[in-house]
């Protein structure tokens, strides 16, 4: 029997800088097994750069597009609800690129109070290097770190930070010993 209400996404979905709300609408229309609902105005600033392969279950596909954004995904029966955990209206947004202008993915961005360095928020850049961190403060000490790049730390206003270029970190190894053996045949 052919199951017409498959829980899997129909076909491959490619998102390149697509708004999260648009991506969710597209996924919602890919299967009848689940219904996606979300608070649209909260998700408009979050962008998705990801390829969802055919055959993923819809809840997994939704979690994948939400990535590291501060977004809660709850599955209740056939309902999938998506909403932003942080309700702050203002957001620190930006894009991280390397010296070659290629996006820096999965960098950690930590926001702390400029006066006492108390943690006030954080996030991770996506595959396109984009990050969106809701924050109620007017400004914050922003620390951006990623393996292979020099850590950036500076006080920024909570707004669009634009494109931030990260510099490569130089690594020096003390010494390397390469050892090996010639294969021998037993007589």
């Amino acid at each position: 029997m052919i199951c017409t209400f498959s829980s899997q996404v129909n076909g491959q979905h490619v998102f390149k800088g697509t708004s999260l709300s648009k991506a969710l609408v597209e996924l919602d229309q890919s299967t009848k097994r689940y219904d996606i609902s979300f608070i649209s105005d909260e998700l408009e600033d979050f962008t998705v750069t990801k390829t969802i392969k055919r055959g993923r279950s819809l809840p997994d596909a939704v979690r994948e597009v939400c990535g590291f954004y501060p977004v809660k995904v709850s599955v209740k029966g056939r309902d999938i609800l998506v909403e932003c955990i942080q309700k702050d209206r203002t957001k620190l947004t930006g894009r991280l690129v390397g010296p070659d202008r290629q996006p820096v993915a999965y960098a950690n961005i930590t926001l702390s109070s400029p006066s006492d360095t108390a943690y006030i928020g954080g996030g991770v850049s996506n595959e396109a290097g984009d990050f969106v961190i809701p924050c109620s403060a007017a400004q914050a000490r922003v620390r951006i770190s990623c393996v292979g790049f020099k850590t950036i730390e500076r006080v920024m206003p909570i707004s669009d930070a634009g494109t931030i270029r990260m510099q490569m970190e130089d690594y020096y190894l003390n010494n390397i010993t390469v050892s090996g053996r010639m294969p021998t045949e037993d007589a």
């Binding site: 709300s21 969710l24 609408v25 919602d28 219904d35 996606i36 609902s37 979300f38 608070i39 649209s40 105005d41 709850s74 209740k76 309902d79 609800l81 909403e83």
Partner: peptide
């Protein structure tokens, strides 16, 4: 609050309300 959701007009009222209360 702006929402994206679906509503089955033949279903009882509490279905859509329960869904919205999930937020």
């Amino acid at each position: 609050i702006h929402l994206y959701t679906k509503w089955d007009t033949t279903a009882p009222l509490n279905q859509i309300i329960d869904r919205l209360n999930g937020f």
